[in-house]
């Protein structure tokens, strides 16, 4: 490393800038010995002083088993807790009103309902939409909440309760609904299942010739096996959460394969309980929001529709 400096040159003046070179050259590259511009020192000092000030005020330096807490005593956790407490303490008026008033009163109050819709939109989008669809119109196995066709009943208290405890959920009070697996559990032979579903499907629409022949026999099978839950008229019973089989609204699907699958393997929809995750107020807002969506002729939730259509809000 101690070779002679035979490549060192005497510093030269750069004609363009007027600064001297350092006198070194690397394969043609030289450097000017330009002093560090003043602003560099200036801003370096400012930045450092800012840092020192910040360290004094905020938690900053570790000291073995603890750290400097800072003069301001700031802690991000306390800060957010405080913010949330403040938000709760200064909760907008409508919240207290919605919490206290009964459903009918709120529903009759357009101003309150406007707030409910605003809050409901986000709550529904973040918690319910993945199952019930962005517009609450449902998905296969997840009911449409806007069609006024209720499994468990559509009065507000019932809906609120459904949201609170869930269906087949882990909540101790959960609603329980279980469609038996008639085929899988060998309660009905395959041929009988095909017969009964011909009848069931005939209730909500025309069936093909082959099935028409089975309808009468299916009716008897239905009375014997299904009516206990779905009712004599097959219109369902909200007490048990059994769907109406005589309308053309299907939870899982009304084509032959799907109905066969339903009766053969049974169904057991799961709806989580929201008691531990959402406050009572939020659940009440959701109840009102969901019922509002189902109002006859109600404008579909505009933001949700926009969202599903891909427009930037």
């Amino acid at each position: 490393m101690s070779q002679p400096d035979h490549m060192d040159h005497a510093p030269k003046r750069d004609p363009h800038t007027g600064h001297m070179t350092t006198g070194h050259e690397w394969n043609g590259i030289t450097e000017l010995n330009t002093p560090v511009p003043k602003p560099v020192w200036f801003f370096l000092t400012i930045a450092f002083l800012f840092g020192v000030g910040y360290w004094i005020l905020m938690p900053a330096w570790p000291l073995g088993h603890t750290y400097t807490k800072g003069l301001l005593g700031v802690d991000q956790r306390r800060t957010v807790e405080h913010k949330l407490q403040q938000a709760a303490a200064h909760a907008p008026e409508w919240m207290a009103k919605v919490a206290a008033a009964d459903y009918a009163t709120i529903q009759a109050d357009p101003a309150l309902m406007a707030d409910v819709r605003q809050r409901g939109h986000t709550l529904f989008g973040d918690n319910c939409a993945v199952c019930h669809g962005l517009n609450a119109t449902g998905n296969k196995g997840f009911p449409n909440l806007t069609d006024n066709d209720w499994l468990w009943g559509g009065d507000p208290d019932t809906v609120f309760e459904t949201i609170r405890v869930g269906i087949n959920s882990t909540h101790p009070d959960s609603r329980v609904s279980q469609m038996p697996a008639f085929g899988h559990d060998q309660m009905l032979p395959r041929a009988d299942i095909l017969t009964v579903i011909a009848y069931v499907r005939s209730l909500s629409g025309p069936v093909d010739k082959e099935d028409q022949a089975k309808v009468a026999a299916g009716k008897d099978l239905f009375a014997a096996n299904c009516a206990a839950c779905h009712g004599e008229d097959a219109k369902g019973q909200t007490a048990m959460g059994t769907p109406n089989l005589s309308d053309a609204i299907w939870l899982y699907g009304g084509d032959k394969e799907t109905v066969f699958e339903t009766v053969y393997n049974g169904r057991q929809g799961h709806m989580p309980s929201w008691e531990a995750r959402l406050t009572a107020l939020d659940r009440k807002v959701l109840t009102l929001y969901v019922l509002d969506l189902g109002r006859k002729g109600a404008p579909a939730d505009s933001a949700a529709v926009k969202a599903s259509e891909g427009t930037v809000p």
């Binding site: 807790e81 405080h82 949330l84 407490q85 709760a88 303490a89 909760a91 919240m95 207290a96 919605v98 919490a99 206290a100 008033a101 009964d102 208290d157 609120f160 406050t279 009572a280 107020l281 659940r283 009440k284």
Partner: peptide, 12 residues
């Protein structure tokens, strides 16, 4: 921090 701040819904 509550002290009655967070409203509770009826029926709860």
């Amino acid at each position: 921090g509550a002290a009655g701040a967070i409203p509770t819904a009826a029926g709860e």
